[in-house]
Every structure is written in structure tokens, then in C-alpha cells.
Amino acid sequence: MVNQDTYTGPSFSVGNRAARVLWQFAAFLFFKFSPRPFHSWRSFILRCFGAKVGRGVHVYPGVNIWAPWNLELSDECGIANGATLYSQAKITIGYRAVVSQGAYICTGTHDYTKSGSPLIARPIVIGDNAWVAAEAFIHPGITIGNGCVIGARAVVVGNMPEWMVCAGHPCKPLKPRVIVD
């Protein structure tokens, strides 16, 4: 962070802010209005801005992304329209993981206990085969375990275990996730 006092100036460097302006311009022109099935095109645009994007990734045109250079999207993951990836720090989304519509993956907050409320940015990891359901909120610094399901509108304030169904405010593990083929 450039500035520890958010009342007197921005937390990020001029270079970071310029890159975000460029990204927002490109996202508006080439990402947001691209046809829904053009996943490869949007993956290409994200790669041009520094994202690490695997094969077969489905990022829909209505996804809000703060800084693509802080994204790592593994093979065959999906990010639905209306999801927000507030990537002030790194967001890693695992193999075949799904982030549903309206989910908010938030890596940034402020330290309200210090003068100036300095920014705190912590990475988020969403494991392989995990599912973050509609309108869930994931706090900074959280790890969602492999195969974990986060229920709709859950508020995740702590790490969630592997292969569990979790829900609530605050989000808690409810039962094992069992795959039946």
C-alpha cells in the first residue's frame, strides 16, 4: 500500500490506478458487451491484463473484476454474471470451481482500529470443485476448501473445510457434501 491514511490519499500507486483505468476502459469495450458464449475471447482479454487463466474457463460478460492481474483461474472454473471479484489482493479459483451470480469475493477491507483506517488486502483461495452460491460474501483472507459448497447469501468470515455444505451468517459447516453419480 502506498498510503496508510485513507483520508489523505489513495492506498494504491499511480501506476496501479492507471492500470485499473486502462482495464476498466478495455473491460467496457471488449469484455462487457462480448456475446455470452465468447468465453475464450474474455479469457484472452484477462490474460492480456495479467490474469492467469486455465483452459475451458467460463467467465461471463457481466462479471465485475477490479484488477485482473490479481486473478488465477484454474481449468474449467466458471464465474457467473453479476459476480464481483474485488481483487485488491490475489484471488485463486480452483479447477471446476463455480462462483454464482451476485457472489462477492472481497480481498480488501480497512483497519478501523488505526488512525486513517489503512487498507488491508488479503488473498482468497477457492478450492477445486468448490461452489460459491448466489449472493454469498467471502471476506478477505479466506480459504474455501476443495469440494466445499457455500450456500446462497452466506457470509463467510472464516476458512471453510473440504467437502462440506456450509451456509448462514456467519457461514458454518452443516453437513458433508456427498457426490452421487
Rank of each mutant, 00 (worst) to 15 (best):
M1Y: 06
V2K: 15
Q4W: 05
Q4T: 12
D5Q: 11
Y7M: 14
G9R: 00
Q24W: 10
F25R: 05
F25W: 15
A27H: 11
F28G: 07
L29G: 04
F30G: 00
F30D: 00
K32G: 06
F33T: 04
F33N: 11
F33D: 02
F44P: 04
I45G: 00
I45P: 01
L46C: 06
F49E: 12
F49R: 08
A51C: 13
A51F: 07
A51H: 09
K52A: 10
K52G: 11
V53R: 07
R55V: 14
H58S: 11
H58G: 03
H58N: 10
V59I: 15
V59M: 07
V59L: 04
Y60A: 06
P61L: 03
N64M: 13
W66T: 07
W66P: 01
A67V: 07
L71G: 08
L71Y: 08
E76A: 06
E76W: 08
A80I: 05
A80K: 13
A83W: 05
T84P: 02
A89Q: 05
A89I: 08
I91N: 00
T92E: 09
G94Y: 06
A97D: 03
A97R: 02
A97S: 09
A97T: 06
V98S: 06
V99A: 09
Q101F: 05
Q101H: 14
G102H: 05
A103M: 04
C106A: 10
C106R: 07
G108T: 09
G108P: 02
Y112P: 00
T113Y: 09
T113S: 15
K114Q: 14
S115H: 11
G116C: 12
L119Y: 01
I120V: 15
R122C: 08
I126G: 01
G127I: 05
A136C: 03
F137D: 02
I138K: 04
G141H: 01
G141A: 03
G141D: 02
I142R: 00
N146Y: 00
N146R: 11
G147H: 05
I150Q: 01
A152P: 00
R153A: 13
R153L: 06
V156E: 07
E162K: 10
M164I: 06
M164V: 09
V165F: 08
C166L: 10
C166Q: 05
C171N: 04
K172W: 11
L174A: 12
K175N: 10
V178F: 02
I179R: 03
